[in-house]
Structure formats: structure tokens, C-alpha cells
Amino acid sequence: MCLAIPMTVKRIEGTRALAEAYGVEKYVDIVMTPDVAVGDKVIIHAGFVIERLDPESAREIEAAWDEYHRAMNDEKETGRPDGA
């Protein structure tokens, strides 16, 4: 029972924050991570921030994923799905 996704904190209003990911916005509760700040990447579960993403490790992962997405996009433009 662990579906949780990364979002970015846009605004903080008391015990809640407006978080954003992929253009989707949602108010989330930050009572479990009181030191969260605007711009932080956070993990959301059932409407709550349960943890902040560590910027260092996240950057590494993101760089890898950017590479990967670039590779995927190249593939989308030039490649053809063979469905096989």
C-alpha cells in the first residue's frame, strides 16, 4: 500500500502546501515534514508529504532519467514501433 509520487512544492499555507507535478496541482498536508520549503521535491502519499527528496541523490537520478527521456524521444521521432 505504497503508491506515492514525487511533486514540487509551489506555495506553503500553514500546514498545507500547493504541490505540482507534470502540470497537475494538489493541496497536500505537510505536518510530517515541517521543514519543507518552496521548491523542494517531495513524496506524496494519500494527500500528505511523507518525505523530502534528497536533492543530491535526486539530481543524479534525474540526470539519468533526462538522458533516458532524450533517448526515448529520439526513438519516438525516428523509430517505428514494430509491436512485435
Partner: peptide, 19 residues
């Protein structure tokens, strides 16, 4: 067979689906 990399899916749709 569909190719996941070929599917046109908007970022927002991915985001909501993930959530």
C-alpha cells in the same frame, strides 16, 4: 502490441494517473 514509447500521453495525464 503497443509500444509504450510511442503512446501520445500528456504530462498531466501521466501525473494524475500516477497519483
Amino acid at each position: 502490441g503497443l509500444a509504450e514509447t510511442a503512446l501520445p500521453v500528456r504530462d498531466e495525464v501521466r501525473g494524475v494517473s500516477g497519483m
